[in-house]
Amino acid sequence: MNEMKLMLVDDEPRFLETTQKLLLRKGVEAVTALSGEEALEKLRLTSVHVVILDVKMPGMDGITTLKAIKSRFPMIEVIMLTGHATVESAIEGLKSGATDYLMKPADIDEILRKASEAYANRQRLEEKIRVAQMRKLSGSPRDIIKDS
């Protein structure tokens, strides 16, 4: 099983920096992005399992970013980070495919817990996919030939 890799997206550089350090100390690697555009760009280059995404950002907002991520990288789990006034948009985010949401100010442990849950979720999903493919493999060699 791979180590969980996180991406933090927020327009506050200091928040990204500190959280990244904290995560690192907790043994979790995290990349950061200051905007939705940057996040999408970095996602193309690096492999990330879970994205912590701020709902309210200048430029490309959280929901748009989420939709873009989900359409381009469907296997990435997204957790929305929201102030209370944007709970509605957090809910909208859930509808658009976000795994969970976090309320600001969020504790580092809480962030990590939710991220881990999402990651575990993803792992389970990937596991299922793998098992299904294995069955396919062992089921009929012809199918494999057909598939390949």
Binding site: R25, G83, A106
Partner: peptide, 24 residues
Amino acid sequence: AGFAHEINNPLQIIKSEHSLIKMI
């Protein structure tokens, strides 16, 4: 509401910094 929302961002940073200090 807007005001409270804006306060939440610095609070988030303070909280992170606090966690970091504590950890270090």
